Simulated scan of single mutants.
Amino acid sequence: MVMKVHGSLLSGPVKRVLVALYEKELEFEFVPVDMRAGEHKKEHFLALNPFGQVPAFEDGDLQLFESRAITQYIAHVYKDKGAPLVCEGKPMATVSVWMEVEAHQFDPVASKLQWELVLKSMFGMTTDAAVVEENEAKLAKVLDIYEARLSQSKYLGCDCFTLADLHHLPTLNNLMGTPVKKLFDARPKVSAWVTDIMARPSLAKVLAMRNQ
């Protein structure tokens, strides 16, 4: 059976899963969920994700939700396909640390900036300059730590592209079109890392899905 990803192409977590599937060169079916119509809160969807959030994922009789858990499943179960995305032995511990950093240090701040600078305008809402200023300062501190880390290895987890890097891609893609880009550009190692990972063909394929 072909894997299924249920969600919206406007969702960062959905894109995160799709990038992982393309990295692994796996076949899948994308099942659109009409979030404007509240389809993600309907009973049939809640059977897949009881929290009523996208994505939901199916691989045969296995059902999963939470994008980072799904990408880990894809990377470990299909480790012999496509790009590795995970490491063996001790290096995986470091990859896991930076996956946690993305989830708990980078994403909360970056997502607030994404909401203010990208998503609000899509919904006809006004950007809160004070929130932007506050979170730019917080993101700058996180990126200082990234700059130090990327002075030690090419990618966050190790010297090869892993889930620790991949998990950043959807939010990075949105922020690079905003004034926040200056925070990344001001840090040479971070800037080179962003340029590198955003050039992944997997991301281009996911972005192209919106135009199909």
Rank of each mutant, 00 (worst) to 15 (best):
M92Y: 11
M92Q: 15
A93Y: 13
T94F: 09
T94V: 13
T94H: 11
T94R: 14
V95Y: 07
S96V: 04
S96P: 04
V97T: 07
W98K: 09
W98T: 08
M99D: 09
V101P: 04
V101Y: 03
V101H: 04
V101T: 05
E102S: 03
E102F: 02
E102K: 06
A103P: 02
A103V: 00
A103F: 02
A103W: 01
Q105C: 10
F106A: 07
F106M: 08
F106D: 06
V109Y: 07
A110R: 11
K112T: 14
K112G: 10
L113C: 14
Q114W: 11
W115Y: 15
E116P: 11
L117Q: 15
L119H: 14
K120I: 12
S121Q: 15
M122S: 13
F123Q: 15
G124Q: 14
G124T: 14
M125H: 11
T126M: 13
T127M: 14
T127L: 11
T127V: 15
A129H: 00
A129I: 00
A129L: 03
V131H: 03
V131S: 12
V132L: 05
N135E: 03
N135T: 00
E136F: 00
E136K: 10
E136R: 12
E136P: 02
A137G: 06
A137W: 03
A137M: 04
L139K: 08
L139V: 02
A140R: 02
A140D: 13
A140Q: 00
L143F: 08
D144L: 07
I145Q: 15
I145C: 13
Y146S: 07
Y146C: 05
Y146A: 03
E147L: 04
A148N: 12
A148M: 13
A148F: 04
L150E: 03
L150I: 01
S151N: 11
Q152M: 05
S153L: 03
K154Y: 00
K154W: 00
K154V: 06
Y155Q: 04
Y155I: 01
L156E: 07
L156N: 05
G157F: 02
G157K: 08
G157C: 08
C158R: 06
C158I: 04
C158V: 09
C160E: 11
C160D: 06
C160K: 10
F161M: 00
F161K: 02
F161T: 00
A164R: 06
D165E: 02
L166R: 02
L166Y: 01
H167K: 03
H168N: 05
H168T: 01
L169Q: 13
L169Y: 02
P170D: 02
T171W: 00
N173T: 10
L175R: 07
L175N: 05
L175D: 03
M176L: 15
M176K: 11
G177E: 13
G177M: 09
T178Y: 10
T178W: 11
T178P: 15
P179N: 05
V180F: 04
V180Q: 08
V180R: 10
K181C: 10
K182G: 12
